[in-house]
Nucleic acid binder design. Structure first.
Lengths: 236, 236
DNA sequence: CGGACACTTCGGCGGTGGCCGAACCGTCCG
DNA sequence: CGGACGGTTCGGCCACCGCCGAAGTGTCCG
């Protein structure tokens, strides 16, 4: 054993957690921001429960997942927003290669629902996320020319819409998350999370199926038009 | 062979490229933005030339490295800014665990030089990068409260300092890069790269040693004070 | 109390991949 | 032209790791 760069060791160790298809499938599934049980993930990934148990052990030990035991269930979720961002970054990097034709109608319709609108950990993504981000930018509420930040008008808009923006810790108020279907940045960070939570709480969107896909309701279409000038056609 | 999520497959395949200590050491070394020869990297990583040759083959095939053959040399560098950003993101994630005491004076002095100032692919990092970023923010040239973007005054400052900001492709003008020694964001993106190039071109900084570390010159201290009010003491 | 269920541990199997040294191929240069 | 040198290919070795099924532990519920 020779003496090596500790940073390289740590980097390799972290990457190794992602470098398995089963674990990668789990991390992507957990991008929906919810807590999954071990058996749900085993079914999702298509491996035996015993196999998945070991994977979860590694992911938790590596700090990527937080676990919560409830009775005979083991719930896991992504440890924090830093981890979620890392999964997003990696997923965005590989998306061009993942642009594969759907093999059947079921995958096709599920895929297009995801492309239309979904959550990305704790904020809106897909065409819905892009449409909202573009609308914010067009109205001068979000600055994208010289970086990525809310403007003063943007802060006022959130306040007037009744969406609170409480900064917790060091998490940035606004940050760009690269969408892996649209290949364009959309709003993440505290503001993205608050907007998504508000959209789900007030019924602008509802989750469909058990995955991350969301659907804009009639009330949501009206609200997005009134508040941001988003045309319903942009969401389809 | 069961049918699996193609995105998970792609993600695992990408992560596998990082999931080896030798390859990780190469990628971190290449964060200096320069092109290295295969034998330089072999020496750096402490493995046989034959071993490293295979690693380079994988990294190039995976799209992480670009290669250029010149005579009997094989030069490699990070493929593009997207890859560099990914390496940075991963490195930043592991830095807390990598905070290991240096084992001897040589490592210690090299480490503190790196902590004082270095390049991070194509922009300034370390205390130097933080000091510049903080100064830009304090003077209202960079907005960090509501995101991360240059202000109008910031654009004017770059113009008046004679630092051109040409947008190429989709690369953002300003973006935050998390520093792995300081644990704080510093200026990256087009503006960060332009500033770094200008600093090296005009002699504000010079590279020291063969690594990424840079040192602020007397002229640089004066310029940073005059243009941004950075106190020399903040750079030590 | 007993059976169903969620999860874990263990042993064993097979594939992958990192490593080296030896041999080989080009290029460079005296 | 010949030796030095950078890089590559190949064969063989070994460690690691993902997988499963079987057996075991703890929880829930009728």
């Amino acid at each position: 054993m020779t003496t090596r760069d500790p940073q390289a060791t740590a980097l390799a160790r972290l990457a190794a957690l992602f470098a398995d298809e089963t674990r990668a499938a789990c991390l992507l599934a957990l991008l929906d921001g919810r807590a999954w049980t071990a058996s749900e993930l085993a079914r999702h990934a298509g491996v035996a429960a015993s196999t998945l148990s070991e994977h979860l052990g590694r992911l938790v030990a590596g700090g990527l997942l937080a676990e919560e035991r409830q009775g005979r269930h083991r719930y896991v979720r992504l440890a924090d927003t830093r981890v979620a961002q890392l999964v997003e970054d990696l997923a965005a990097q590989v998306s061009p290669g993942a642009a594969v034709r759907p093999r059947n109608l079921r995958e096709s319709s599920a895929g297009s629902a995801m492309a239309r609108g979904r959550t990305c950990y704790d904020h809106l993504a897909g065409r819905l996320g892009i449409a909202v981000t573009d609308a914010l930018t067009a109205r001068g509420l979000l600055e994208q020319e010289t970086g990525f930040a809310l403007t003063d008008a943007g802060l006022a808009w959130f306040a007037s819409a009744g969406i609170g923006l409480e900064r917790r810790g060091r998490r940035p108020l606004a940050r760009a998350c690269l969408d892996w279907t649209e290949r364009r940045p959309h709003l993440a960070g505290v503001a993205g999370a608050a907007l998504c939570r508000h959209a789900l709480d007030t019924g602008w969107c509802v989750r469909i199926g058990s995955e991350r896909a969301v659907k804009v309701t009639a009330a949501g279409e009206r609200a997005l038009w009134d508040l941001l000038g988003v045309e319903a056609v942009a969401l389809r």
